[in-house]
Amino acid sequence: KELVLVLYDYQEKSPREVTVKKGDILTLLNSTNKDWWKVEVDDSQGFIPAAYLKKL
Rank of each mutant, 00 (worst) to 15 (best):
L53E: 02
Y10C: 03
E12A: 15
V41I: 13
L53V: 12
Q45W: 15
V20F: 05
L53K: 01
L28W: 02
V4D: 00
K21T: 08
K13N: 10
L5M: 10
Q11N: 13
V20P: 00
S31N: 07
P15K: 10
V18H: 05
N33F: 07
E40G: 08
V6M: 02
R16P: 07
D24H: 06
S14I: 06
L26V: 11
T19M: 06
D42W: 09
V4T: 02
Y10N: 01
E40Y: 06
S14T: 12
L29E: 02
K34H: 10
F47I: 06
S44N: 14
E40F: 06
N30E: 15
T32N: 12
V6H: 00
Q45L: 07
I48K: 01
E12L: 15
G46D: 03
D42N: 14
G46L: 15
K38E: 15
E2F: 10
L29S: 03
K38T: 09
T27W: 12
L26P: 00
V41L: 13
L3G: 02
V20T: 04
E12K: 15
Y10G: 01
I48W: 02
R16T: 11
T32K: 10
V39G: 01
Y10Q: 01
D43N: 14
T32H: 10
T27Q: 09
Y10K: 01
D43Y: 09
L29T: 04
T19A: 06
I25G: 00
Q11F: 14
P15D: 12
D43G: 15
L56D: 02
G46K: 09
E40H: 06
V6L: 02
V18R: 06
Y10T: 02
K55Q: 08
F47E: 04
V39S: 00
N30A: 09
I48P: 02
G23L: 02
Y52A: 12
E40K: 11
K55N: 07
Q11P: 05
D35Y: 15
K38C: 14
Q11R: 09
L26C: 12
V18A: 06
N30Q: 10
D42K: 14
F47S: 04
G46C: 15
L53S: 02
Y52H: 13
I25N: 01
L56H: 04
A50M: 04
L5F: 06
K22L: 04
K38V: 14
R16E: 11
D42T: 08
T27S: 08
I48T: 03
F47V: 06
L7A: 03
R16N: 14
L7M: 08
D42A: 14
D42C: 13
L28F: 02
S44F: 14
S44H: 15
S44L: 14
L28I: 04
T19G: 05
D24S: 09
G23F: 04
D24Q: 15
K22G: 05
T27D: 04
V6W: 01
I25P: 00
W36E: 04
Q45P: 09
T27N: 09
Y52M: 10
W37D: 00
T27Y: 10
W37Y: 04
Q45K: 09
K38H: 10
S31W: 09
V39I: 07
K1L: 12
A50P: 11
L3Y: 14
Y10R: 02
K21E: 04
K38Q: 14
T19S: 14
L7T: 04
D43R: 10
Y8T: 07
I25W: 03
L53M: 04
